[in-house]
């Protein structure tokens, strides 16, 4: 009888573990939206699903609140034409470090940097300041739902593992012990994976990615034939005038 109860409990527990949706935990999260990019209006509704595997007391948790902060991942890619590539890269990296960011990758004239999400616009402005923008693309991905789903999956897996461990204490048949241990191992792997994914996502949210490809000015047109400006004073300034009239 005892073995039957144990088996039944084990089966129920496994069923619960396979259900990976639950009422989302809605603790406050802080995704600082980059100032220059708008975020979608509603993201919390998508993650509001029914909890199937937990005890009734937990299932009756307070409903999701509409004030959940969004988690946004910002990315940008720019091409900037500059007079001196190396100098521009060094200047850009110095500014990025000053913003609390860091270099992600560097190859030839291209650099990929990570900056705190709140400084995303500042990093873009700095890259634009260094020369003439040839192209740029900005991306803002809302990962709130993915994040919440992952948290729920993780929460469920942890709870299931706890229940299995409790059952393991009570199990006395070798066959039951082996089956429970197998499931504990599976859940442990799942927890580790979910934790890793959450960590990666949190990093993507906290730090925006800016990729800048610096290109040297194709050819400085040497002493292009000068056409007088319609503004008198502009004809008085410039390298040629400083050299001639100084």
């Amino acid at each position: 009888m005892h073995a039957l109860c144990l088996t039944l409990a084990l089966v129920l527990s496994l069923l619960a573990a396979s259900c990976q949706v639950a009422e989302p935990r809605l603790e406050s999260v802080d995704a600082t939206p980059a100032p220059g990019l708008a975020a979608p209006d509603d993201v919390t509704g998508a993650s509001r699903t029914k909890h199937l595997g937990d005890a009734p007391a937990e299932a009756e948790a307070p409903p999701a609140q509409s004030g959940t902060a969004r988690r946004m991942v910002y990315r940008a890619a720019l091409g900037v034409e500059v007079a001196r590539v190396e100098e521009a890269i060094e200047s850009f990296l110095t500014a990025v470090r000053g913003m609390g960011g860091h270099l992600g990758a560097r190859a030839d004239g291209a650099v990929t940097v990570r900056v705190p999400a709140a400084r995303f616009d500042d990093a873009l402005a700095e890259a634009r300041r260094l020369g003439r923008v040839l192209h740029q693309s900005l991306q803002a991905n809302d990962v709130t739902k993915t994040y919440l789903d992952l948290e729920i999956r993780l929460d469920n897996a942890r709870k299931s593992r706890e229940r299995l461990l409790a059952l393991l204490q009570k199990a006395d048949k070798v066959e039951d012990i082996l089956r429970i241990e197998e499931q504990v191992r599976r859940l442990t792997t799942e927890i580790e994976q979910a934790e890793g994914e959450l960590k990666y996502l949190a990093d993507q949210v906290a730090m925006s990615t800016v990729q800048v490809e610096f290109k040297a000015v194709a050819a400085l047109v040497p002493e292009r034939r000068r056409v007088a400006s319609r503004f008198w004073w502009i004809n008085q300034v410039g390298v040629e005038r400083v050299r001639r009239d100084f």
Binding site: V82, A83, R129, L130, G131, R132, V217, L220
Partner: peptide
């Protein structure tokens, strides 16, 4: 008109705190 390449631009303040514009170029003369 003159074939200069812009290198950078930013705001700048003079002694009286007035805001001006700083521009830098590379040129071949």
């Amino acid at each position: 008109n003159r074939g200069y390449a812009p290198v950078g631009a930013s705001e700048v303040q003079d002694k009286a705190g007035r805001t001006g514009r700083l521009m830098e170029f590379a040129a071949t003369v």
